[in-house]
Design a protein around this nucleic acid. Structure first.
Lengths: 196, 196
DNA sequence: GGGTAAACGGAACCTTACTCCGATAGTGGC
DNA sequence: GCCACTATCGGAGTAAGGTTCCGTTTACCC
């Protein structure tokens, strides 16, 4: 996991110092540019901001998806870990599900264009798509399962479908005050409640 | 509205015959290409299929949005007109709303990439966005209003938000058998029901 | 048939993604 | 401390798509 350690000279060749420095610069620059120009800002802009050539970006992050994943990894992890926690601290499993979806929505809508690129069928974003799904679907499955077991919701919707749906609802949620993604996601979850 | 009339020689100059022919060719070609390659197929492809130069496309349809609107105008109109009709033929206003949303979803998911481009924040698709909204939001408003008046659903969601939400849910619905947009849209509408 | 302006076509240009390779400069061995 | 070795760098080059521009063609009116 942690490759920044530089223990006593071991056979495994350590990454060169400039490479590590550049990777850090790139992550910082990308994060800044993503905030100001969205996640599909031109690669050149990110390279310029980091003070490196475009070749350096592609060497460290073969696809744009890899860069996006690296930038948001921490937050995705946090979201994933929040699932089980909410299950413990909420009054009911349904309540936990509702709150977890809120977290996910908040994360997505605050990242200009991330939701859009997440659902893009553009090959090359497969890695991004997969990362989110691999990390979050299991968490969602558990929340859905708990809420279904407690009889609060129907049990005929897969976590995958729900995640994609919620992700879609977040598209374009920034830059349109009339569109409230959080609200709609809430209604969608509300729709899961058992009829009656 | 109808500019294909060529009434008795009036001062208004009639459009040249080749221009009218090309416009027709372009609409046919675009429709065909949209089906096989999606609505964001390269402009050059459409021009080639129609047997005209790219300049001719831009002369007839200044933006891609104009072309898309022209191609799907009939179906959008049909959808808009189906609203009031459903209100008359359905058992309850809620039922009419549910069925109308189904129609809208079916329309969107069968047009590769249309939903995505509809929500794109890319300026230049404003016209497309506006056309759909101008034409369909009033219809949706009426359906929502009727269902709210009959007490079947809550009344605190604007038609605009619902339309955007449903449109978003349709993104990427083709080419992913595990994702059922119609189902999710149904759940969203279900979520509108008054609690108890 | 001839004059005129509408309409055509596609070369040219711009922007962005992504690749490739000569130049640069850390690193480990001495 | 110096050198050779090679990982890494930087950005010119290539490709693809969108949009514009203007010399050429052609329908229309008389």
């Amino acid at each position: 996991m942690n490759d920044s350690d530089h223990g006593p000279g071991h056979p495994a060749r350590a990454k060169r110092a400039d490479a590590r420095r550049n990777e850090k610069s790139l992550l910082d620059a990308a994060a800044a540019v993503f905030v100001s120009s969205g996640v599909d800002a031109p690669v050149r802009d990110i390279a310029a901001r980091a003070g490196v050539g475009v070749g350096t970006i592609y060497r460290h992050f073969p696809t744009r998806a890899d860069l996006i994943i690296a930038v948001y990894r921490h937050q995705v992890e946090a979201c994933a870990e929040a699932g089980p926690a909410l299950l413990e601290t909420s009054a009911t499993p349904y309540e936990a599900l509702r709150r977890w979806i809120d977290l996910f929505v908040d994360f997505l809508v605050t990242k200009h264009g991330l939701a859009a690129v997440l659902q893009s069928d553009d090959a090359g974003f497969d890695a991004l798509h997969s990362y989110f799904l691999d990390r979050l679907v299991p968490v969602c499955t558990r929340l859905l399962g708990a809420a279904a077991d407690s009889g609060e919701i129907r049990s005929d919707l897969e976590a995958y479908g729900l995640m994609r749906g919620v992700g879609n609802l977040c598209i374009g949620a920034d830059h349109d005050p009339r569109y409230d993604a959080r609200r709609l996601a809430g209604l969608l979850v509300e729709g899961l409640r058992r009829p009656r």
